[in-house]
Write a protein that binds this DNA or RNA. Structure first.
Lengths: 344, 344
DNA sequence: ACAAACGTTGCATAGGGATGCAGTCGAGCA
DNA sequence: TGCTCGACTGCATCCCTATGCAACGTTTGT
């Protein structure tokens, strides 16, 4: 067997930046043991007032702050929660992020942000994140692909999504009642006088989108209406405009339009006015979804659905902290915000 | 002297969640030493193909991922960069965040997000972040208070701000040439026929705001114009509207309006139309700042300034990585985007 | 055929902090 | 006065990975 013990070796670590003071340095200066320093800074740690004072003075003098990364080594929890959002260009995602971040910071957790393109990117992002020992992952994306959900479960980290095709011990879901909101929009548009209906979708295959559409169609069906025009947008302003151009190009289009989200709806309204000279409340009623700030602005005054991000965030936190979860989704009741865009 | 060595103690750690497999577990399964596992996963580590294969197989079987937090213990760099933004309700901040996040993720760094109210909150946020050993801090805030800048410097972490009153070895600044842009806007408005000018400010005391205003006034001065009405907004849509109501309430208001940012400008335009029946290009020319997505929408078609976030982000990354920096700020030349809101 | 050179591997330890255990010291009690 | 109890404190370890060094086996050179 090789090599006997030896000591006093010299490190030539590469660009080793100057390290901040450690608890050992503080202990030396304060004339106490390293454990005393640790106990002073550990919540719930026991130290006499005298010791605590000496330690705090020394720490202040050196500018010492406990290294939370190495703390997480012993405690097994990093205090870091990952938040994955897709596309901050959409103010809804920005607001969701802000809600999450605020709540997490308030409870002393830190937010690791990951911007992901879609749910598949989410898989590899989580793989990376698991290396950082994040305590949980929150995402405003919805997970539809079953295999993605299963892949996520492998990391043994609580993952809270907004809509997921399958939920499991690790993949948990909180969502607004998109279906119910779709029904409500249908009835509202009808009550306001719309008779020819249309729906502008987003990228196909997202659960939220499918549920909103299904709800809308069911609402129409309950009113005895089977027909509903349809066009596809892209979740953004431009897509809404394009969809309207497709819908109204040939002959009369719908006079009641439900759009997957507010950006799409605002794009739709703009195209109606610009390209077809149609006025929004008078000729076509338009409703959106998300209650983005801009939806309240005078040019739009858009009827929309407020999902209640604060309540969603609160539920997400609860789900994230739960030890065990029976696989089922938590639904939050959204709130219909009626504005001038659907008032004749 | 107390206690002699003893071993085999039992831990009753509190809710110790099941820990993920460690390199030791992988080593055991693969029949190699822990160092072999470490070398397999360390970029640049040396291991024979045979060993590497055994290790990778074992790691795959156990679902092992190296713990990046403890890695950072030895390497001294966490790979985490903090990004501090204020108020994601403003799409400009959301866009800045996205630019930063994308660039950082592309280079394999992780983003720790901090939402802060103002620069003072930034100070305590950085204090907390320094516990997480972040490699640098980026922020879309500007730091004006000298004492805040000095407090930040104490943490010995590179901090890149957008505008800072004082720069130092640690506090570095990249900014758009707000002053120059203000001048350009003044000349543009004048060239388009405006004669009575007005400026809508944000909260007082932010450097960006002061520079835009100073530039605007200098541009006017160069045109021989001394007079410029002024009202204060709040960086948001509502503030712009309120400012317009204040400006136009008594008699004729300006026919050339420069607003601190796009949200303010859009609020201004809406109030001009709603409350005073003034049309935007015909009666009043309006310009904003930031080139937010909504500024291109048909109701506004807002002339604005694009600061070039991608270039700013690139410069920020360079500043962040620089070992030593001569204390001076990096200026990026912004780009005037002219749209219908200033075309008669 | 022997030595030197090279490529790999394992050992031991560092890095910062948390904590079980045992020992110290002072206070309270009989 | 003597003893028990309790409050602290320090020691020794552990958490997980990275890495300097020495030892090993193999290949190459002469």
């Amino acid at each position: 067997m090789p090599c006997t013990a030896r000591k006093g070796r010299r490190r030539t670590r590469q660009v080793t930046r100057k390290r901040p003071p450690s608890s050992i340095a503080v202990a030396r200066l304060a004339g106490v043991s390293q454990s005393a320093v640790s106990r002073t800074f550990t919540p719930g740690g026991i130290a006499s007032p005298a010791t605590r004072a000496k330690v705090l003075a020394a720490a202040e003098a050196l500018g010492y702050r406990p290294n939370l990364l190495s703390r997480s080594l012993t405690t097994g929890r990093s205090g870091i929660v990952a938040v994955a959002v897709g596309g901050l260009a959409n103010p809804f995602h920005a607001m969701a992020l802000e809600s999450f971040a605020e709540g997490l910071q308030r409870t002393g957790r830190q937010v690791m942000l990951v911007v992901v393109a879609d749910e598949w990117a989410l898989g590899s992002a989580v793989e990376l994140l698991s290396g950082y020992q994040v305590d949980a992952v929150l995402t405003s994306l919805s997970v539809n692909a079953t295999d993605v959900a299963e892949a996520l479960a492998r990391f043994a980290v609580p993952i809270v999504t907004m809509n997921s095709a399958v939920t499991s011990r690790w993949v948990r879901t909180v969502a607004a009642d998109d279906h119910g909101a779709g029904v409500a929009i249908a009835k509202h548009l009808h009550a306001q006088g719309a008779r020819r209906f249309g729906y502008i979708a987003g990228r196909s295959g997202t659960l939220a989108q499918e549920r909103r559409e299904a709800g809308f169609r069911q609402g129409l069906a309950e009113l005895g209406i089977a027909e509903c025009a349809r066009a596809q947008g892209d979740h953004h302003h431009g897509g809404g405009s394009a969809a309207v151009r497709a819908l109204y190009a040939s002959g009369t289009g719908p006079d009641g339009l439900f759009c997957l989200n507010d950006l799409t709806a605002m794009g739709a309204i703009d195209a109606l006015r610009e390209d077809f000279g149609l006025r929004c409340p008078e000729d076509v009623l338009v409703a959106g979804y998300d209650n983005v700030a801009a939806s309240a602005w005078p040019p739009y005054r858009l009827t929309t659905v407020d999902v209640g991000l604060d309540r969603i965030a609160a539920q997400a936190f609860a789900l994230m902290e739960a030890e065990e979860v029976e696989p089922s989704e938590v639904l939050v009741r959204p709130h219909l915000v009626t504005r001038a865009s659907t008032r004749c």
